[in-house]
Amino acid sequence: MPEKPDTEMVEIFIMGKKYEVPKGLTIMKAMEYSGYQYVRGVGCRGGFCGACATIYRVEGDYKLHTDLACQTTVQDGMYLTQLPFTPAGREKYDIKEINLDTNPLLDLYPELARCVSCNTCTKTCPQDLEVMDFVNEAIRGNIKKVAELSFDCIQCGLCAARCPAEIPHHHVGQLARRIYGRYQAPDSHHLENRVQEIENGKFDEELEELAGLSKGKLEERYENREIQE
């Protein structure tokens, strides 16, 4: 009989089934520890891709919590389920043919007008974004503000799963950021200038010199490089 590891364990429930897992694991690692293998609902494991949306409740608390499985550690008495995908409608559009005379966000997502400002989306967001605020701005047609407020959205879709008005907030935010980027954001002249400089061969000589160095010389250069403090 294998010895029990000398680690503090917590009791969790994965889709209703009880498991004992070491304290301190993330939900994602705890599920793998319990024998589950992720095929979908996993991505970067670093809190950026939004693939591992999780809904859970802790025994004794009425709240349904939402988070990312790769970012949240397990607690004793956690009831878990994974939500790798929210079937929220995403409209097709041609970004080159957006009509800015009307409100393109409302034109493509008229369900925005069903919002009653219940704030459930904001309470749900694992990124702590002010989701309801950007839905309100979307209704008012303030694309720049929607782009700003939704900037850190990772498209996990949990807001859309819980919204009583069935709004696909994450798709609305993404559309706003695309429209803003194409039509409203100031042009980045320093970037254009730099690209032009490179095309004109500004760095060709240095690059050629580096390419001609031996491995040893290259290592020496690397070791002695100037680092900006």
């Binding site: 009653v116 400002s117 219940c118 704030n119 002010e130 309801m132 605020d133 309100n136 209704i139 009583p164």
Partner: peptide, 24 residues
Amino acid sequence: RWNCCGTVYSLTDDNLMKQLGPIR
């Protein structure tokens, strides 16, 4: 951080969802 007022006052007596916006 004001939100939509609710646009039209809801006369539905048993559903308070539409009162959340104005009250917030």
